[in-house]
Design a protein around this nucleic acid. Sequence first.
DNA 1: TTGAAAGCGGTACCAT
DNA 2: ATGGTACCGCTTTCAA
Lengths: 343, 343
Amino acid sequence: MAEKRRITLKDIARELGISVSTASRALNSYPGISEETIQMVQEFAKKHNYVPNSIAVNFRKNKTMTIGMVVPEVVHYYFSSIISGALQAANLKGYRLLISQTQEKAEQELHACHGMLAGNVDGLLISISNETSDVSHLQEFLDEGKPVVQFDKYSDQLTTPKVITDDFQSAYRAVKHLIDQGCKKIAHINGLEQVQNSKDRLGGYLKVLSDHNLEQNPEWIPHCQDISEAEGYAYAKQLMESSNPPDAIFCITDLVALGVMNYLRDAKIRVPEEVSVMGFSNWKISEVMQPSLSTVEQHGFLIGQKAMDLLIESLQSTDKASSNKVIEVPSDLIIRKSTLKKG
Amino acid sequence: MAEKRRITLKDIARELGISVSTASRALNSYPGISEETIQMVQEFAKKHNYVPNSIAVNFRKNKTMTIGMVVPEVVHYYFSSIISGALQAANLKGYRLLISQTQEKAEQELHACHGMLAGNVDGLLISISNETSDVSHLQEFLDEGKPVVQFDKYSDQLTTPKVITDDFQSAYRAVKHLIDQGCKKIAHINGLEQVQNSKDRLGGYLKVLSDHNLEQNPEWIPHCQDISEAEGYAYAKQLMESSNPPDAIFCITDLVALGVMNYLRDAKIRVPEEVSVMGFSNWKISEVMQPSLSTVEQHGFLIGQKAMDLLIESLQSTDKASSNKVIEVPSDLIIRKSTLKKG
DNA sequence: TTGAAAGCGGTACCAT
DNA sequence: ATGGTACCGCTTTCAA
């Protein structure tokens, strides 16, 4: 295979009998270069397929036009939507995107972040893992003057902008809908207690219950460990077999809701007549379930876009003081059959 | 925000009163450096958190330890599985992964590839878009001596290794299962005619029909344009309302099968009693459908891993002649209720 | 065992 | 309007 060495600035300068600096300026259309020269150089460059060696440029300018993005899981509808949004925003501004996943492990997150640092990304977009409590690996970026934007799951020990779903409000509205449909005994299968999103959704759930003077029962609030279908099934069983079973179950995510629906079908409990079920995230499966699952659309694509825009903004602003702003992207309640009682 | 400038080799050399070259050699434990010096330098480096400036290293070595990966869609179960596998394999070997998506547009693919080239990736992993016919943008990589590995959708105009599902065999076995279940009139909703995977699946389908002397009917082989749920619905309707309706429908992918299932439910046609339905790809939705959908698991994670391993291999081998080998990752037939006739 | 210096491919400052 | 040159941080050859 003939390895065609790329043509360099030096080659152009030599061939055209001009200096390297002139060639450089002509290519970048600097002021103070004759039209003629610009013409000549640009034509030559195009004809010979000149592509500037970006490593050299990066080296000189000490930036890479590359953003690092660290997510818990790539194979995940919500996160891949976020990636897609970030990708588009990055593209629009001429940035590239380096991706890593942590599989919800703090150790892998550390490793991924160090990889990003070694890869000399200009900035970092991250959704921290469930395990993460220490965030010194993120502080390292800030210490080097590299902006960080957190999205979805975040730590508030860090002064960075954050882009998230409005979890509290989303949960509030989701449960409000259940109440409007006549549910009185509403359970909530929550996530890990220490995770911010879980706390916020729990908060919204509790608030709407108290606003409507509905029963609050600690036994109705189990916490998932790994947010799985199996846990949904098990907790649904536990809830429904208790002495005081709920008439609605609000789930931390659609996957858990799937487990719940499976249990209810196996137990021949009708949805929504006997128990209403509400999910969260609007995965494709929510639409496919029988009956279809009411859920909350978080607009991951938008979150990804917004997070990237924010990051690039702080990359381009001279004022390096990081904001601590929390941007909440409004969600939409998607009402389907699992919560819609007839009449 | 205090921007801590990173410490450089030069700093180390100055502080320790040695030369830059000695410092460099000590850090990389070159032969011909005294244990003492190595000790001293490495200790100093660790103490001061020395991280080599990878841009400078890349520049010098003219490689970036970064792989470019171009896929049609990120928000897609199969592709995100492949990405996940590639990510893991890359990680294991110390490579980073730059990602772009094309949204099945040839123009975006071109742009993405040029971005990768400009980003100076060491090699490229790509699944071409449905629109792609000209592959000169991939040839550019080969011309520069950068290896390319194709996966999933590929062009055979290019001498590169390819990692794919065994589409022909997979389709053959899937349809064979339908035949074993007693189906005699088997339709196949195929994909775009010019796409290799579609051709291969169609080939497997036709072969098994002829091997069993079953009816082959051109009207039973509609071609999707965008492989959507809506198309599945429309073609199912068309097939079932024809004068000679099939008793089984083999779909190019699970999403199309979902449309088919929706139509059949709306039309009150029982699955699998009256019509069996087979999907392809084993998305989560296939498990959730009622009845659950039989399908083909393509092991995307493995495909991603294998493609990345192959790429890194050719990156590290001195022999730069690209192989034209096609590696087929065996699929698994997943039998669920949509094809399992009782008794 | 160590040091000096060239050079990777650009950019940008200082001359002219 | 153009050329000369230092330099970004590191690796590597050559010399000592």
